[in-house]
Amino acid sequence: MIFVKLFYEFFLIGLFAIGGGAMTIPFLFDLSDKYHWFTAQEVTNMVAISESTPGPIGINMATYAGYNTAGILGGIIATTGLVMPSLIIIILVSRALKTFECNPNFNFLLKSLQPAVVALVLNATIQIAQLSLNSLLPFLIFAFILIFMRFYKTGSVFYIMLAGVIGYALKL
């Protein structure tokens, strides 16, 4: 039963998380509210692990969430669910059109969704910030990383790892 639910929920995410990547995070928070498969704090762990391991972030998150909920099979089923909408839609699109160009109406629809997407990801960010910035010390580290970002531009993994090292060194 849990496998059916996992498949269904991640199928929905695959269908609605337009743009992928960070867009999966708001949906994972929704799941943590709805099913108690994992806590909101674990979602933050998932983001960290997905960002710092190879592979598309959305897929990493599905595997991690599925594994956390129902072991190896859970990971496989959640990932399959996430991938299925893409597989179906792209195959249909390829069949229907020889040379596909974004349909202007469809393009308009997706563009008009973007402000809402920003709002969803912002909300997820606020939730993660509330969980991790619960006292002065983490807040100072947070501010330091943000300032550091402005002056030293590199991949996300580096900032996350740096914060991890600081957390370890200061016994956060």
């Binding site: 997820a124 996350i160 991890g164 090292v165």
Partner: peptide, 12 residues
């Protein structure tokens, strides 16, 4: 992990 979560907030 606590440090890493702060980093995730900043990256997001």
């Amino acid at each position: 992990m606590r440090g890493i979560r702060v980093g995730v907030a900043a990256v997001l």
